[in-house]
Simulated scan of single mutants.
Amino acid sequence: MKPILYKKTSNELTQCSIISCISAIECKGTFLSLLGASQSEQKKIVGCFQKQVHAQLEFARSDINWTMEYRLCCNSKDTVDIFGECPDYAVVIELDKHRADQVAKKFVSRLASFQSNPLFFISLCYPGTPAMNKSECVKYFGYCATLASRMGNHYAGFIIE
């Protein structure tokens, strides 16, 4: 099982290479014990996956300076799960359950926080509860992609099934 790309804004080379890297990550078995686990156990499972994604990106795109838990500002506890930076652009990758409200909230807050253009924003969603509406999440991927394009940025939305 690998992340499935549901939406992307363009065929821009940087975006395509990052998408290709994320699409190749093997997730089979990674999230099997997530449902029903305590919050602390869920955090450990997602943290291990975050490290896996970070390592894959560092290997595939060593031209980008990758950081985990990048702090948005010194007065806030708000962090970006995986942040990539180089002179011409920045990359923001957020890992969340496939909930439309989480996807939208992170997208809006991160685009408001970063001034660099272009910004490559990626929603990488892992399994949530059966009550979470995957189709609504995919619908919001489309909204995020539209807004990102209008603002001169790039967007991709993935769901791990």
Rank of each mutant, 00 (worst) to 15 (best):
I22M: 02
A55G: 06
A112D: 07
V138C: 01
V138I: 15
K2Q: 09
K97F: 04
L32Q: 11
C86T: 12
L13S: 15
A37H: 03
T9M: 08
A37P: 03
V103Y: 01
M68T: 14
I159E: 02
V92Q: 02
L119I: 10
T146S: 11
A131F: 12
D88I: 01
F49D: 05
K2R: 15
V53L: 15
E41V: 14
I160V: 13
G29A: 06
K2Y: 10
T79K: 14
G29W: 01
S116P: 00
E69H: 10
M68L: 12
A90V: 15
F121Q: 04
C86H: 08
T146E: 12
V92G: 01
T129P: 00
S62N: 15
E161T: 07
F114S: 01
E136F: 02
F49Y: 14
T79A: 07
V80M: 03
A90I: 14
L72Q: 06
G157F: 10
A55Q: 13
E94H: 00
A112R: 06
A131S: 15
A37Q: 06
I18A: 07
R61D: 10
K77V: 02
Q56I: 03
A90K: 15
F83H: 12
G157Q: 07
E41H: 13
E26L: 08
L5C: 11
E41T: 15
F83A: 04
T129S: 12
F83I: 01
S109M: 05
A112Q: 08
A145T: 06
L32Y: 09
Q115T: 11
M1A: 05
T129N: 08
I45A: 11
C73E: 09
K97S: 09
S149R: 09
F120Y: 15
E12G: 06
R71P: 03
S20N: 15
E94A: 02
N65Q: 11
C144H: 01
S135L: 07
A100N: 11
M132A: 13
H98E: 04
L34M: 11
C21E: 04
V138T: 01
K134Q: 12
Q102S: 10
E161C: 02
S109T: 06
I19P: 07
K28H: 09
V53G: 04
N11Y: 12
E41R: 15
Q39R: 05
Y70K: 13
N65T: 13
I64K: 07
K97W: 04
E161P: 13
I22F: 02
L32T: 13
N11Q: 14
P3N: 08
Q42E: 10
D88G: 11
N75G: 09
F83R: 04
S40F: 01
L124Q: 01
F114Y: 12
E161R: 05
K51W: 04
L119Q: 10
K2H: 13
F141V: 04
R99M: 14
A145M: 09
N153Q: 11
C137D: 02
